[in-house]
Amino acid sequence: MLELKQITKVFNEGTVDEKVALQTINLTLAPGDFVTIIGSNGAGKSTMMNIISGRLFPDTGVVRINGKDVTAMKEHERARYIGRVFQDPLAGTAPHMTIEENLALAYNRTKRRTLKFGVTKQKRDFFRETLKTLHLGLENRLNAKVGMLSGGERQALSLLMATFTKPDLLLLDEHTAALDPARAALVTELTKEIVEKYQLTTLMVTHNMEQALRLGNRLIMMDRGQIIFEASGKEKQALTVERLLQEFQRIRGSQFASDRAVLG
């Protein structure tokens, strides 16, 4: 479904600020895989997500989605295959547009936009039904401006907008990190439900180890631009936070750099 081959990325090459963000990353996701990615700040998680989504382009290497080489494809073209939710709840929605208008915009992700009405009666019914699955009562507020919603509600809506068109690949970039614990738990639960319902191939970055262990069938640990540890299936189910930290220490021979990774 997703294939990363020999991806490297260097920022500010040849200057004092040179930073190797990714070093020969190889990663393959089978259809239906739900992979969680952990790693300290600066490990290259976000760079990898941005290279998959087309916001950044790799220096070398190939990105394939569904067997198709998309390495040179622009972000908005690639978005036909990809649904995304960002860390910032404000990033995934248009605040001055209503809930139904936002959903209509997301509905057109895989279609060519035309001069037909964005919100039709038929679509509105569909939106209402889909919103009900969030259990937040948003189905009764179709005409509310999204800017009036709380952070948790906006993130739940963003998640719905990214997924209800069944993308080939779902990218979640620390999408619960900016929410309070109760809201984060809610969005995590919704994520689980939705990914299972649509059988989405998913890549989720998180700082929360416990979340990384609880969700998905595969886990990846990144450090300094490399994938340093991988576990899947039964092996992943047997993992604990302590084991992960020990594993990191064994590989890197140092204490896990980020406090946030432990506390988060």
Partner: peptide, 15 residues
């Protein structure tokens, strides 16, 4: 309208 409201978001929905 979304382009004026939240440009990065519009790209992520393939516009």
């Amino acid at each position: 309208r979304a382009t004026g409201d939240n440009q990065p978001m519009v790209s992520s929905f393939s516009a």
